[in-house]
Amino acid sequence: MLHVKNLYKSYRSGSKSYSVLKGIDLTVASGEFVAVMGPSGSGKSTLLNCISCYIPFDEGTITLGSQELKGLDEDTLAKVRNEKLGFVFQDFMLLDGLTVRENILVPRIIQGHVGKDAEALADQMLSLFGIDAIADKYPADISGGERQRTAVARSLINQPLLILADEPTGNLDSKSSHTVIESFESARTELGATVFMVTHDSFAASFCDRVILLKDGCIWKNLEKKEENGAFHDRLLSEMKAMRRE
């Protein structure tokens, strides 16, 4: 599904150059729920932004399905973002002037055709994520958890190959975080979605099949989940502690 090979990315500040990603190699299989964790400045968000094609990268390759992302022109990249990727952001990024239902349909509107099938899919997701009662409300009138579930529904409307989530629980309380993570679970089980999530939240990460620990721009460890969520959470915490000590 997603193949990242030897990925390098650096930023320039004045005359200085800072390497943020130093040769990342990773693969995400179809239907997998993967989290990336690491301390601040480890390169999590930069990795996600490179996969999202939001920022260009220096070296390496990113392959999504059968499509190599490097060297694509602006229009093709936009098409990839629209058709093959779904996005969930920490601050929701819903459009304030549109209702919940319209927000969910935005990726389809960008595509140019909102058919009956899209409307039906939107309705299906409204009910799947428990937000059908607020379908005609505006983002300003709903809670943070509801906004993020709307964002999850929006990320799925084009039935993408991969959903990229950047700190999706970062702005939510624990109860809302739980419902959002459950939304990802539902998307995976009901719609067969593949999710790649960057998070600081070890509780959210404990729901994933695999957690990649990132440190100083390199993969420090790849943790497969073999146990129950609670036990995996404990293992995550101790691994994080060990990573910080090292």
Binding site: A78, F87, F89, M93, V106, I110
Partner: peptide, 9 residues
């Protein structure tokens, strides 16, 4: 937001 969701320039 629109660009992030795949709208081209």
């Amino acid at each position: 937001t629109l660009m992030a969701l795949g709208a081209s320039r």
